[in-house]
Design a protein around this nucleic acid. Structure first.
Length: 696
RNA sequence: GGCGAAGUAGCUCAGUCGGUUAGAGCAACGGCUUCAUAAGCCGUGUGUCGCCGGUUCGAGUCCGGCCUUCGCUACCA
């Protein structure tokens, strides 16, 4: 994963900046735990290492959300940052500095880097005619506009290309465009945009990405195949006002796009740390003696492996030594979903379970490849119980009590080479950590734990205890086992810092360095034994999943758009999540006549069929009463089984213009709510309604 | 459909440069033990290494084709 370090080198490590629009969940934690383990390993090994992070705070999403919640962006991002930091601390993720991209330092750095990019001739200005939503008062990105394809007249196409005839065009070419933010008809408006001409750096980027030193091979291949074979498109790094972010000093009315200032936030956050610790920023970001390691998810590969190195190169900052890219988290092989309760927030987990469990479980699954990892709760419980409680912690609880009065032997006794074998294995464990192969490290550690338990069995301290003449031997055996336990605690310290602390307390000698694993501890007192870790309570796991399920509350006011009703003051406040409304703000007012144009009808699904070639579609035959039927394709395959659909009542748009699709003609649309994917909720009707009834 | 990754024991995975009889943990089963948090120890594997073909003295490993799964993307919303 990365080259072996020369030990006088400094290491600067970053994890991706979490966006201030959402709370930390167990999917995010894969990355922060992965990074924290690596940082702790480096520090334990005696290397000078900084772990830097910050909240990513800018962008349209933050602006709209703050607007919806009736408060300032600053208030919103401050609150989210506090929540993020609390969650991270709860999982023992220890940053050296945690900042915000909305900082004075970041603004100053953006300005400096910007003017350097200008002087390097990398910035191009161009007028861009874009659609503008007069309702929301903002320009619309391509995918926020839908309309009819100018080529084939297919309706409902996104603003960049037609899914039907593959034509590419600009959103301003769409016939009858509609803003997906408000439903308003956008107007054309011209604005100046600023672009970074990344193509000028393609030669450098090809060499840098393909050198084999900075990226996993899978990632290098991906970039080669997808981007580096063709000229790179200029990167649009400005957004016209209104926008929550930094105003571009030499371009009035324009702001830096959030993805421009976010990675610069890595440097800005380091700078803040430097100011507090009286250090030079250039020693960290412009020095050959410092390695920079970014940990990110595969979703933001593009930015961190092309744009970011390109910018750094152009402005004279150090390039990353390595970009460590991990996959996504699935739960039971499925994407996390709120409906299934698998989108578990960090704070919810911490209410019910020990963070050490998740740290160990992730460690046992994480390798150096950018592969997805799967969380399976059965395996989670089994692994923690069996490995940590049954094997590791058990070593202490089998022996510590026998030496509470006497402490450890003065000299380390003969142990048949067990401790020495552990020292040898330590090098391989260290190598595995270094390479990001934590799964391998955990396997090696558990092999040692197995050997130690076997030793306990063979020496049977409980038998020695009964014979007064064998008390010295008993102390020796316990000295050996507790030293093997301590060795394991050193090896596990990057993953389980709490355990290593508890071990320090038990044996009255703190674990401070990896090298503590190389010398046995002798002659210390042994504290009264206390349980070091509890088994996983399966009921708590179930409770966590249950309480993470999003339950629709149909009768509560869903959003505070109108005046809050007076009774809300006396009843306990039901706070609904704001995300759905932010994701899709209210459409502009329409008249009753407008509404009457849409003919919504109750219909019964009489046949639900698989569309084998389609991943998301099912083919429904619905009855509108009598022998009037319609064929409708609906994108609900991931959310409903065919059996669940057949026979049930749905509400369809009965007078929608039929649409020819690859799989057949769709004669209407089934109404549903939700974000898509597995989060699709069909509209139902109370008992009594009949197929053919119109919805008024 | 496009791009990428992966298929090895019931589950999770290791398997380096092509080299003896393909391994580990968990689960299961049998026995032992009772220090320990119902923990621990010993023992038990008839696996078409996804399929077909090729290269080779020799293929889980290299090459070609196919199948399946997963991810991204598209169709839907």
């Amino acid at each position: 994963m990365s080259e072996t370090k020369i030990d006088d080198k400094k290491i600067l490590v970053t994890a991706a900046l979490p966006y201030a629009n959402g709370h930390i969940h167990i999917g995010h934690l894969v990355e922060y735990i992965q990074t924290d383990i690596w940082v702790r390993f480096q520090k334990l090994s005696g290397r000078r290492c900084l772990f830097i992070c910050a909240d990513d705070t800018h962008g349209t999403a933050i602006m709209i959300r703050a607007r919806q919640e009736g408060r300032s962006e600053q208030e919103l991002i401050a609150q989210m940052q506090a929540a993020h930091e609390k969650d991270f601390a709860g999982f023992d993720i220890e940053f050296d500095h945690y900042s915000s991209t909305n900082s004075q330092e970041n603004y100053q750095l953006c300005t400096e880097i910007w003017s350097k990019l200008r002087s390097e001739g990398l910035i191009r200005e161009d007028d861009v005619e874009q659609l503008y939503d007069p309702q929301v008062g903002t320009f619309l990105a391509d995918r926020f506009v839908k309309g009819t394809c100018p080529e084939c007249k297919s309706p409902g196409e996104y603003g960049d290309n037609c899914s039907k005839c593959s034509a590419t065009y600009s959103p301003t070419d769409l016939i009858d465009p509609v803003s997906t933010l408000s439903g308003a008809t956008p107007v054309k408006k011209t604005a100046k945009h600023l672009f970074i001409q990344i193509e000028q750096l393609r030669g450098f980027l090809t060499q840098w990405t393909q050198s084999g030193k900075h990226l996993q091979t899978e990632i290098a291949n991906y970039l080669k195949g997808h981007f580096l074979g063709h000229p790179l498109r200029d990167w649009d790094v400005s957004r016209p006002e209104p926008y929550f972010g930094f105003a571009i000093p030499d371009s009035p009315g324009n702001y830096w796009y959030v993805w421009f200032d976010a990675p610069i936030g890595y440097i800005a956050s380091t700078w803040q740390w430097c100011k507090r610790h009286n250090e030079q920023l250039s020693d960290w970001w412009q020095s050959e003696h410092t390695e920079i390691h970014h940990f990110i998810g595969k979703d933001i590969t593009y930015f961190h492996t092309l744009f970011w190195p390109g910018v750094l190169k152009a402005v004279g900052y150090s390039l990353p030594s390595f970009v460590h890219i991990h996959g996504f988290l699935t739960v039971d092989k499925e994407k996390m979903a709120k409906t299934r309760g698998t989108m578990i927030r960090a704070s919810k987990y911490l209410e019910l379970l020990d963070p050490s469990y998740l740290r160990y479980y992730y460690a046992s699954k994480l390798g150096p490849k950018p592969e997805d990892i799967d969380l399976n709760f059965q395996e989670f419980i089994a692994k923690v119980d069996s490995d940590l409680v049954g094997k590791v912690v058990n070593l202490a609880s089998r022996t510590a009590r026998f030496v509470e009065g006497t402490g450890l032997s003065i000299e380390y006794p003969h142990d048949g080479g067990l401790f020495a074998a552990g020292v040898v294995a330590g090098d391989r464990i260290a190598e595995a950590y270094e390479q990001g192969d934590y799964a391998r490290a955990m396997r090696l550690i558990m092999e040692l734990a197995d050997a130690a338990n076997s030793f306990v069995e063979n020496t049977a301290p409980w038998t020695l205890k009964k014979d007064p003449t064998l008390q010295v031997r008993l102390q020796e055996v316990c000295t050996i086992v507790l030293n093997l336990f301590r060795q394991l605690c050193v090896y596990l310290a990057p993953v389980l810092p709490r355990l290593s602390q508890q071990c320090g307390k038990l044996l009255q000698r703190e674990i401070v360095a990896w090298s503590d694993s190389k010398t046995p501890l002798v002659g210390t007192q042994v504290s009264k034994f206390e349980h070091l870790m509890q088994r996983v309570d399966p009921k708590k796991v179930q409770q966590m999943v249950d309480e993470s399920k999003e339950v629709p509350k149909s009768d509560a006011p869903s959003v505070p758009v109108a005046q809050t009703p007076v009774q809300a003051v006396t009843s306990p406040a039901v706070t609904e999540a704001i995300e759905p409304l932010v994701a899709e703000p209210l459409a502009p007012t329409c008249t009753i006549e407008d509404f009457a144009k849409v003919d919504l009808r109750v219909a019964r699904v009489i046949k639900a069929e698989e569309v084998p070639e389609a991943k998301k579609l099912v083919k429904l035959t619905v009855s509108l009463g009598g022998d009037v039927t319609r064929t409708v394709f609906a994108g609900i395959k991931a959310a409903y089984t065919l059996e669940q659909l057949e026979g049930r009542l749905v509400v369809i748009v009965a007078n929608l213009q039929p649409r020819q699709m690859k799989f057949g003609l769709s004669e209407g649309m089934v109404t549903a709510a939700g974000a898509g994917g597995t989060e699709v909720f069909l509209l139902g009707v109370d008992t009594g309604a009949k197929p053919g009834h119109r919805v008024h």
